[in-house]
Computed example of a mutant assay.
Amino acid sequence: MSVKEMPNGTFTVQFRCKDAEGNDVHKFRRGFASRKEAEEWERDYKATRGQTMAMHFSDFMKIYEEDMRPRLRETTWETKSHMIKTKILPFFGRMRMEDVRSIDIVRWQNKLMDMKRPNGEPYSPTYLRTINNQVTAIFNHAARYYGLHPNPAVKTMKIGAKEAGEMSFWTKDEYLRFSEAMMDKPRSFLAFEILYWTGVRVGELLALTPGSFNLERLEMRISSSYQRLNGQDLITDPKTPKSVRTIKIPGFLKDEVEEYLACRPDLEGDDRIFSMTKHYLAHEMKRGCAETGVKRIRIHDLRHSHVSLLIDMGFSALAIAERMGHEATDITFRYAHLFPNVQENMAAALDESKGGAF
């Protein structure tokens, strides 16, 4: 390092190095208060520009964003970014990538598990697993593409749980009781009708336009999703490629959509039918539950309810997965436990089958 002390007591640093593209660069900087500060600046510059693992974790996050952000939906990246800024950077930010050890990740995990939400409740097991997976993804990326060795995430155990311990849903009878309370507001009623009887995601519902429907063919086309991001309304691609799909709708739902659109001549083909927010739907659900006594569930649980209804009606996992836009049938199979009486019905049917054979 070429650090020199100047007559006024400050320090300068001058050096040559290669940048990330392999080009030779000459750097000169003055005004450092100490030799250590000047040497530290040189080391940080070389690590960051040369993309070596001597860089700080916070500097690597800038590189990680450049690599990953173009590959992700904007809403997905915003979720990741918030997680990194609030749950990961405060612990690892000033550590150098090459200095992070497995025990550091263990200590971060322990600290994370002790954290509480604003209401005093601990984070859910599934949320802990999501954050843990993000840390693993960061170090795996550094190891795979930037030569980090050893990878501190390899030896650490995961925390949290992959799936929620309990999945809520409404039976058909519960939904029908709830829907009666929505009839005083046609827009709310139709929104919940579509959510329950088609199983679409909330973002997919809020992106629907009159042009999304071919009522003669009893079809609803899902090709986009609504998101509210940084105070802006965004229409994005659906969650996954399989999410782009055409859903057949029952005749009664076709009649309800047709009747509602007939009362809304102001809607053009590309206008959103439901110019509302997820918060509004949650408020309406709370109102309906209070009026009818039906148990409270999340808006997303209406999607669970639809899958559960189809399973109870005897449809195959493959057919349900296609309707729901699931990437794999194993996602659909996770819902099977919502009908514990299915096993009893199977046993009874087998018993009857054997009895009928004699």
Rank of each mutant, 00 (worst) to 15 (best):
I131T: 15
R298P: 11
S2L: 04
A348E: 11
G9R: 10
R221F: 10
H279V: 08
R73F: 07
D24W: 15
S308M: 06
A143M: 03
R272M: 12
A143R: 02
F213I: 01
N133I: 06
A349H: 13
K254I: 01
K36Y: 02
E204F: 11
Y226I: 01
F60V: 02
V294N: 04
Y175N: 04
F92S: 08
D266W: 07
Y123E: 06
T76M: 05
I311W: 06
P250R: 07
P340L: 06
D312T: 09
D67M: 14
H141G: 09
T126L: 01
K185A: 06
E344I: 07
R43E: 05
V294R: 00
G203W: 01
A137D: 08
G203L: 03
I222P: 00
D312S: 15
V13F: 03
D330R: 02
A336T: 14
P90Q: 06
K111C: 04
F358K: 15
N341C: 03
G9E: 09
E322Y: 05
E40Q: 13
I159A: 10
F339Q: 06
M97G: 01
M285I: 01
K254Y: 02
A317S: 14
K85D: 13
A143H: 07
Q51M: 14
L206N: 09
S353M: 15
H82S: 14
N140H: 13
L176N: 04
Q14F: 01
D184Q: 11
R177D: 10
C17Y: 06
K36D: 05
I131M: 13
P70R: 08
L309C: 01
N214Y: 07
W108Q: 03
L302P: 00
R144K: 15
L338E: 08
G9C: 04
A161Y: 00
Y145R: 12
R71V: 07
L253T: 02
D184E: 11
K158N: 14
A20Y: 13
H82V: 04
A328V: 04
R296D: 14
S223C: 07
A348I: 10
K4H: 14
D114R: 10
R287G: 03
R144A: 12
R94S: 13
N230D: 12
F192T: 08
R30S: 13
H326K: 07
Q134C: 12
V244L: 08
R30K: 12
A161I: 01
G165C: 01
I222Y: 13
E216P: 00
F139Y: 13
F32M: 05
R187M: 15
G211R: 03
T76H: 10
L350R: 03
K80F: 09
N119Y: 13
W197K: 01
L148A: 05
I273W: 05
F315N: 09
G231A: 12
D270P: 00
R323V: 12
S102Y: 10
L318Y: 15
H149V: 05
E65I: 05
I222V: 15
M324G: 06
M55E: 02
E65M: 03
D266K: 05
A191K: 03
S275A: 10
E180V: 12
D312M: 05
L302D: 00
R303H: 07
D330V: 08
V3P: 02
I249H: 00
Q343L: 15
R334K: 15
V307F: 03
S225K: 00
A20N: 03
L350C: 08
Y175L: 02
G147I: 13
L206F: 11
A336P: 00
Q14A: 11
E284C: 09
A321I: 03
Y146Q: 05
Q232K: 14
